[in-house]
Nucleic acid binder design. Structure first.
Lengths: 166, 166, 166, 166
DNA sequence: GATGAATGAGAATTCATTCAT
DNA sequence: AATGAATGAATTCTCATTCAT
């Protein structure tokens, strides 16, 4: 309740519904389960993220695209633990509907990583799982900090520099 | 144990009690509240961590102590979101009993950070809040990875290198 | 039904709910707390009682109204200890919602008592607190007796005669 | 908690035991059940009351003894609902151990009542059940009042006068 | 199709009773 | 024999889900 934004997971269905401008009944007419709703939200986010990622990859050179994307995903997933959890859950226990979007965005990230590594901008030994873990970790670090941009940039500095080859 | 770490916060009191080899009643005889139990656990951990941190600071040079401590705290707080949350909650809304240990360990970390910075081993512009945020983030990154040490070391490489001055 | 009157206070919420033809959830949807439910019931009863008392006062002479009201309140509060407790709790620790109805019915009773005393039908030295205490006591006496009207009337005889001036 | 004295019935066993200067274990060594303890206390009280009642009957004339006894029982049972409940429970559902003392004190009260009635001091139509009910009721009335003796005496005046024959 | 009242399984907490010391 | 820590059934309250309107 202090530095942590609202957790929609902890909000009860009625509150979620009201926040969305409807009643509980409506919510459950559209989604069989509260979990299903959250899943749908996740799917949407993952897809949006995949699209933005794709755009970045098309618009910039490999290195720039990689770092821009890192920044993008991190900012987007601050306060959304589930998001990065979903991201990292490769093919494990994820709910079926998340499989597709997860795979897609993982694919995009893999391409960006590979591109940046080939361009010599990122340590070559880093694998996709480590990259995703770093996304989650950086996002988590941001959560600890307030809205002030200066400390946030310092975190990015550390991570960006750390990612560069020695 | 690695993919889905124990969530003592989500576990109900009965389960916690049974896991500890007792009944619910026993649990509530010792702690007035489920929250109080969690608080007590946190206090213990924070104190243990403070002690270990102090020992590291005494046994090694500033730079080595700093990095060893980073490693220590990170490993210790994997899967324990509350831990790093407590750590970062300076004097905010923390429950009274957490105040002391939190302040102590923050003090230790501040000393280590300052020492490492004076020794030229860590970027001088990094403040304590950013350092703590990085602890939380690195720990979170570790959670995403399995038990295999190789990827974990790569994460440490990134963070350690990123922390060094340019 | 006469020896052991229903104790809704001791009944657990689930039983109360089922007795009312619903589930626990429904009960707690309407009243935030078990105590709040009981309070609401009390408010209703006190208000109904105040209304009946007012009617009696309007329809009969002071003495008749007084004794009729005594009879009414007593019969109404048999088996309902909380009722007379509420009645006697002037402005003490009563929950806010009981304040109004309590004051109202106390006012009615005070008027009736004063009227009967001015008409010379009731001992002049008797104060409102004693009157209310007698209501509670008479009601309690009734609880001890069964449904048979003869002993009950004997109790009323004692109390009514005792109330008259010497 | 305001005008009502402590209810040992609502106190938990541990508190009762500590108040008695021992531990819970000791309590349950002596009484198989919390209820059994309360029963034993009741038995003691009833017996003491029976003895005092007998003494009163021996020391004073029938009328005086009757009224003195009424006063005695009433004062003694203020705040002890269970007491008068036990008293009135003739042979019904009472626990076995209460049977004897209850019968004894009821016998004493019956004698006193009969004596006072023969002496012309009490309405002849009043039966033992009504008398006991009046004891309970008067005691209840006293509970509503504070410690101030004046109102209490007024209650006694009403009841005593009401008991006299017309 | 949308709404929100009703429902009951589940969670935290209390307390009579047991048992090892 | 006395003690108090341990135990789990019972109680209040929450919340996902259903259903009548």
């Amino acid at each position: 309740m202090s530095g942590t934004p609202e957790r929609p997971l902890r909000a009860d269905a009625a509150r979620i519904a009201r926040a969305a401008g409807g009643g509980v009944g409506t919510l459950f007419r559209h989604f069989p389960t509260k979990e299903a709703l959250l899943e749908a939200v996740m799917v949407r986010r993952l897809e949006a993220m995949a699209a933005q990622t794709a755009r970045l990859a098309a618009e910039a050179g490999p290195a720039d695209a990689f770092f821009a994307c890192l920044r993008l995903v991190v900012e987007e997933s601050v306060g959304r633990n589930e998001f990065t959890q979903a991201l990292s859950a490769a093919g494990r226990d994820v709910h079926a509907s998340l499989q597709g979007p997860t795979m897609e965005i993982q694919g995009r990230l893999a391409e960006l990583l590979a591109g940046a590594q080939q361009a010599g901008a990122v340590r070559p030994e880093l694998g996709l799982p480590e990259f995703i873990a770093l996304l989650a970790g950086t996002s988590r670090a941001m959560e600890q900090l307030g809205a002030d941009p200066t400390p946030r940039e310092r975190i990015f500095d550390v991570v960006f520099d750390g990612l560069r080859p020695r």
